[in-house]
Design a protein around this nucleic acid. Structure first.
Length: 288
DNA sequence: GAAACGTGGGA
DNA sequence: TTCCCAAGTTT
């Protein structure tokens, strides 16, 4: 199966910034942070602007977190920007400004988990590690396990399932990691998979079984955004990004009518370090 | 392990 | 319009 996917990837993989020759390990790390739960099309413009402004981890570490949060703009989950800034500081302090190539060193960085650590080691440094994201999990669930959808994530099980498929050589392992993700992103998609264009359709356990419906545990439904705490937090963050002096309590009050929810959202942002109380009153983005 | 965490685009 | 989904991590 691996060789089919690798061949398909060479022919059909997209041209993306992080696949260009000479793209830096730092660029890969930044791209992986941005791509966490965020589509490629929204990431690309922000990634390019980010790397132009902060070409190295040390450059970002030298800027205040507030600037990282402003550059993050409306990409969503702004704590990723805070964590990326913190990771840049850690890289500068612990690794002489060089993005580490060791999975355990990467895992020790703020905001870097099982996926991102292995993605950087594999994609930026060419090391042989199983890289498992949501696309990979879906392709394996279908092609290997015959299930319409993957079971709930399980670190050990997921890594073992990918390891069992991973080619021996570093080069093939790299292309397979990238290729199976790409296959999940373009062909073996969550809804209405394009099995007619799939390079492994002849060997897909799910297709062979007649594409049975998913019978496993029901996954948690994403809560409605409209009216949620997330929306209120987003509105406050937007105001803080736009302001270059403290945002007053009165200004925050205009953003959301419900005082209880508004207070809960602001307190959450303060607890997360995304907002800080200013000595002159009001609130700002973090500058420390 | 579940829940929380943004935002926007496509069906 | 409403719902689903998108290269996850942290607590």
């Amino acid at each position: 199966m691996a060789s089919d996917i690798i061949a398909w990837f060479h022919e059909n993989g997209r041209t993306l910034p992080w696949r260009e020759p000479g793209f830096s390990a730092w660029g890969t790390l930044v791209s992986e942070f941005m791509l966490q739960q965020t589509p490629v099309s929204r990431v690309i413009p922000h990634l390019e602007a980010w790397l132009e402004r902060w070409p190295t981890p040390a450059d970002l570490a030298d800027s205040p977190p507030a600037e990282a949060l402003r550059a993050w703009s409306s990409l969503g989950y702004p704590r990723r920007a805070l964590w990326l800034h913190e990771a840049a500081v850690q890289i500068t302090e612990r690794h002489a400004g060089v993005v580490p190539d060791d999975v355990d060193d990467l895992l020790a960085l703020k905001g870097v988990g099982d996926y991102t650590a292995r993605a950087v080691a594999a994609f930026a440094y060419g090391k042989r590690h199983p890289v498992v994201d949501t696309n990979t999990r879906r392709v394996i669930a279908r092609a290997v396990q015959g299930q319409a959808e993957p079971a709930p994530p399980s670190r050990g099980r997921d890594l073992a399932a990918m390891e069992a498929l991973l080619p021996e050589s570093d080069t093939d392992a790299h292309d397979f990691n990238a290729g199976i993700m790409e296959l999940g992103a373009l062909i073996c998609v969550a809804k209405s998979p394009r099995c007619g264009q799939c390079p492994v359709s002849a060997r897909c356990a799910w297709l062979a079984d007649g594409s049975p419906a998913y019978l496993g545990p029901v996954k948690a439904v994403q809560k409605k955004y409209e009216g949620s705490d997330r929306q209120v937090r987003g509105l406050i963050m937007k105001e803080l990004r736009a302001a270059h002096k403290p945002v007053t309590t009165a200004e925050i009050e205009t953003l959301w009518p419900d005082a209880v929810q508004r207070t809960r959202a602001l307190d959450g942002l303060l607890a997360d370090g995304l907002a800080v109380a200013s000595a002159q009153g009001g609130y700002t983005l973090p500058h420390g």
